[in-house]
Amino acid sequence: MMSAVRSFQVPANLNAHTPAEFRGVQRDHVRLMALDTVSGDCFHNHFHHLAAYLRKGDLLVLNNSRTLPAMLKGKSGKQTIEIRLSRKISDNEWEALIVGGVVTVGEKITLLGELTATITGIGMEAPLVILSFSKSGLALYENIYRYGEPLHYEYIETPWPLEMYQTVYASVPGSVEMPSAGRAFTWKLLKQLKQKGVNIAFIQLHAGLSYYGNNRWPNPSKHVEDYCVPEETAALVNQTKENGGRVIAVGTTVVRALETAVNHTGKVEAQEGRTRLYIQKGYPLKAVDGLITGFHEPEASHLDLLTAFIDKHLLLKAYRAALADGYLWHEFGDMNLILPMEEKR
């Protein structure tokens, strides 16, 4: 499915293929474009100045899902197979993408560490399949961590270590792609925000594959991801809203989790499960007021979610400004704050 906002192209030189730390820049010194959802005005800054746009009583909600080394290599007959894990189904089953060979249901793939994976069915949508592994639970995770590699796409030229794909606060393993909106945060910045009176809370949403290769993207209405909204976070969101503060999601994953957890009275409930919520233009956001995110490809459904916060024409105008000003795209790139900023202006 194509995004409703796709009238731009990202030149190759704006694809961030190197983590900030390897460009001689601290994580929180990447650039920040703050975007007023009402006027569409853009403010250009650096991420470590984020506090300038937030107020005492605001709440930042972060996704503390930890990234797995979700790319496994194996053999099926004479074929070399690459497995890209997408979503955990059970202790020994995953939805996954198979790259580099033609495989069918019933076929067995031999992996390192005396591990095998059998294709037992078709996933939630093509081209995903269901894999049943010969190990389960902690033994399977141990094998994944020992022999797996972090997922990376064509614009990444160097196989960076797994730690480059983690946020500093990541603690619950489960994402196959880094929840990258939080990558620019440092403990120093989080402490600074708390000292200003900005509250911090966490959810988990284990991010699945966002790209299937060969110009194929997930159908957002079929894209299932596991999430958990803890009791403490639900209470903080509701309290912030009641007190007139703003709830700012760090990443589209957080938006998806919190909005899934909204009950019929408009309050966020503590809950966990699997969400297939698809947020786009016109969606009535009930839990979240603002968003910190990276810059997204024109084909990504993430852009549809952004149009629930801001008119798509204002968003497109801001993206064109970011392109003209040399902002960097993707998980190692620069950041975008989307928020009503009437008091800032």
Rank of each mutant, 00 (worst) to 15 (best):
I89Q: 12
E95M: 02
P298E: 06
Q280N: 13
D311K: 00
L131V: 05
G244D: 02
N263L: 04
P298Y: 10
I119Q: 07
K191P: 02
H330I: 06
D28K: 02
Y212D: 05
L316F: 00
E272F: 04
V168R: 12
L277Y: 03
L72D: 04
T240E: 01
S136L: 04
G197P: 05
N238P: 02
G244W: 03
A235T: 09
L314C: 07
E125N: 04
L151H: 05
E242V: 03
L315G: 01
L35I: 15
G106T: 08
T233V: 08
E272Y: 10
H44F: 15
L189N: 12
V105E: 15
L138D: 15
Y319C: 02
L140I: 01
F185W: 09
S132K: 14
L60N: 02
F133M: 06
T18K: 14
D325W: 01
A12F: 02
R66K: 15
G245L: 08
Y327W: 12
V176F: 13
F43I: 11
A300N: 14
M33A: 10
M1A: 12
G101A: 15
R320V: 08
A117Q: 12
G101Q: 12
T252A: 08
I310G: 00
K344P: 01
R246A: 05
D334L: 03
P298W: 10
P298Q: 07
A96C: 04
P161E: 07
R256S: 02
R256A: 00
N243C: 09
E343R: 15
Y165T: 02
L140N: 13
A270H: 13
N214T: 08
L62T: 01
A184L: 09
P159N: 13
V105T: 15
A51F: 02
M33Y: 05
E93R: 15
L209M: 04
L111E: 04
I144H: 08
R31G: 06
V224R: 14
L140D: 11
L285W: 07
M124A: 14
Y165M: 05
V168M: 13
C228F: 05
I130A: 01
P161T: 03
W94G: 00
H330Y: 15
L14P: 07
L59V: 02
G273I: 01
L140M: 11
L277E: 04
L337Y: 09
D289C: 00
E242T: 12
D226Y: 12
N219I: 08
R345M: 11
V5Y: 00
T37R: 13
P69K: 07
L138M: 15
N13L: 06
S7T: 09
E82K: 12
L112H: 07
S180H: 08
E343S: 13
E142L: 11
G113E: 06
A184E: 07
L190Y: 05
A261C: 07
E272A: 13
K281H: 10
